[in-house]
Design a protein around this nucleic acid. Sequence first.
DNA 1: GTTTTTGCAAATGATTTGCATGGAT
DNA 2: ATCCATGCAAATCATTTGCAAAAAC
Lengths: 145, 145
Amino acid sequence: MSAVESIDAELTELLRARGQRVTSQRLVINRMLRSRDQHVTAEEVLGAVTQTLPGTSLPTVYATLELFEQLGIVRRLNSGGGAVLFDSRTVDHHHAICRDCGAVQDIDDPAELSGVLQAARDAGFAPDRAAVVVDGLCAACAAAS
Amino acid sequence: MSAVESIDAELTELLRARGQRVTSQRLVINRMLRSRDQHVTAEEVLGAVTQTLPGTSLPTVYATLELFEQLGIVRRLNSGGGAVLFDSRTVDHHHAICRDCGAVQDIDDPAELSGVLQAARDAGFAPDRAAVVVDGLCAACAAAS
DNA sequence: GTTTTTGCAAATGATTTGCATGGAT
DNA sequence: ATCCATGCAAATCATTTGCAAAAAC
């Protein structure tokens, strides 16, 4: 089974398990997300998907990304730069967001966040996960200023 | 000197230091932000300020909040719930954001984030600060589900 | 065949911009 | 008197919604 077939099979199983339909749009968007393991906007998804599946619409992209979020294969990321980013890396990691250009960079580090999670629980909150957001300047903007 | 006078004096000094003008809107918005030490939307600021200074406009509120951000007395907070939140607590703290209702809760905890900051530097990023964002359900939404 | 998904067009809602007036220095 | 800040109205942009046609089951 090829890489694409395996990726398609995984999504198919997730959808079937919830009684939802396996459409070409869903398959193509999923392939696109896993081929680029990075943060993308809905517009970027549409641009890439249109090459394979012309006529795909932005509302469908949004609906699909929301569905994928419920399936746990995509995470929403509020970077503050106008559009929401969708992150297909679901392993724990952190984000550095440039205050000038809004670029988002992944940061991998085994930070110890159990204290914060416990503090959230103590405050009556039921946490799913926690991640660090770093504010500052990306390399390009730091060099420019 | 009363509390309000002291708050006004601080802002006046910050503005003068940058050659910017001390206007009644800026003073009133600043007083409002420090009286409620919590996250507010631009609309909420307008609502509160209008009671003291009727006729104040939303563009002015946005301009003022952006200015205050540059002055370092307010921080922007992207909670994902439609509107941006402005946070007048500038001491380091974390945020718990409810995935259902979007409510934001402050979390105080002395998390050790120097590793993440160093990892960001290693990646070429110039960090200003870092904070933890906790995702999950607030007490009300957890009880409802 | 039945129900879900899609695509289109239009609505929504937060934030920003252009420009003339008013206010601070 | 000068120049910055404000208010108004309109523009912008991402995202959502309503509904009929197409596709998956």
